[in-house]
Design a protein around this nucleic acid. Structure first.
Lengths: 239, 239
DNA sequence: CCGGGACTGTCAACTTGCAGACACTTTGCT
DNA sequence: AGCAAAGTGTCTGCAAGTTGACAGTCCCGG
């Protein structure tokens, strides 16, 4: 659910000289598809800026099942939290295609962080975004059914990286039901079932690894229904 | 799950003169039990430092059910994320007992934030903690059963605010099953059932609104079993 | 010391989603 | 064209947790 419109970098907003200093301190690293940027539990040695390619963030739950948190792309940053608190990584990042990263080692990060207050402020913006993101994510997982989450995920993905077609449909590429299941924290079978439901409702059309969204507004409908049903909102005195 | 050992303030770590400047800019506000600090969807006008009392952070899901995120106490801070990104509040904060807060208005925050780089750095530490917290929280909700989450919550609460008794038990006060259910994202009935299971296992003893923990290590046991069962951890090349 | 209110234990019916199994379709490579 | 691998549709249990209902238990104020 990263990899969608939103704030995914603390570099982009920096004034030019500071950004230049960051890039000057960073080394380059190439990854082939399947290679890990970092792994769960490891010590945070560096943070990363993705120049090219894709990096999937996930972790492995009980039965070895992987739950995808999101995918980051060119321009995005990974691994900042570890730079700030120094605690072990709490998830795993793996390149899903051949990628090229800028690596900013811990010591260099610390030096720049201490000397350029703009960096701390940009990181605040990024972390605030992430706090909101994870909070909403947790909320959504609890409050919405798999079908509703699927609809939302598809709608957001369409907004973010969808490719408009001539016939008005929006194409979502490289999006197998298995991958969707991982993102939603559900099983492939359940996704298949819900997907069929959406297809029968005429909201989309599917083809192996591809989804053609037909009615983007319609995908968000069921959620709005739910919000509309939220009749009994308790009130609290504010002053 | 806040209100437990952890980092809950960006004030405490500030150098003395800066902290003094923050307190000088803040006004005082008294809340009676049940009064809201802020509510879901409102514009972030200020952030808060709790001087005395308790503030519960929660939000209302679909059917009007409240899901408690945690409780903050004296010394803790609330509402920083809104100061940084200016977006509407994404949850509701209500005083659960008569409380006293310091209120730092947006304009004052902005002024101090711009002029004291230490504030941004302390906020990063706090936000990094919150990112981790929410991430773990989401993970736990997905991967662990209600019973396991209950055991963990009780263990952590015991560590955090438990009161050791003469007979070796640890007393957890003001902890009704209803409140636990809200924290765990479950129902009162399910908590009752799991609590009985823990009681039958001899790990604790309950009495209306109180829990006496007998075997703290034992409470964490079932989770360790689960971790131990995590045999098939896929490996990823790191270099 | 007694009665209302809050807290707790338990049950049955129901819903959601998981697990495993199996047949089928498409894609991509040779 | 042909074949293996990946992706998909669907079914049958099965487990966890919800909803609603009801009765029992404890606490505290009048």
């Amino acid at each position: 659910m990263l990899g969608l419109p939103g704030l995914h970098s603390w570099i982009a907003g920096l004034p030019e000289p500071v950004r230049a200093a960051v890039f000057a301190a960073a080394t380059r690293r190439r990854l082939t598809a399947g290679e890990a940027v970092y792994t769960l539990g490891s010590k945070p040695e560096a943070c990363y800026i993705i120049e090219r390619g894709r990096v999937r963030i996930f972790n492995v739950s009980d039965s070895g099942r992987e739950v995808t948190l999101g995918e980051l792309r060119g321009g995005d940053c990974v691994g900042e939290v570890g730079m700030i608190d120094g605690m072990p990584r709490f998830n795993t990042a793996v390149a899903t295609e051949d990628s090229e990263l800028r690596v900013l080692a811990r010591a260099d990060f610390d030096r720049l962080y201490a000397s350029h207050p703009e960096i701390a402020r940009e990181l605040n913006r990024l972390l605030a975004y992430r706090v909101r993101f994870f909070y909403m994510h947790a909320e959504e997982s609890r409050a919405l059914s798999l079908g509703q989450r699927l609809a939302r995920l598809l709608a957001r993905t369409a907004y973010g990286v969808g490719i408009p077609q001539d016939n008005g449909e929006i194409l979502l590429e490289t999006l197998s039901q298995e991958a969707l299941a991982n993102m939603l924290g559900g099983t492939r079978q359940a996704v298949s079932q819900e997907m069929k439901r959406l297809e029968r409702a005429g909201l989309l059309r599917t083809s192996y690894g591809k989804v053609y969204v037909r009615d983007l507004a319609g995908l968000l409908q069921p959620v709005e229904d739910l919000i509309g049903a939220e009749a009994v909102v308790p009130t609290y005195p504010t002053e």
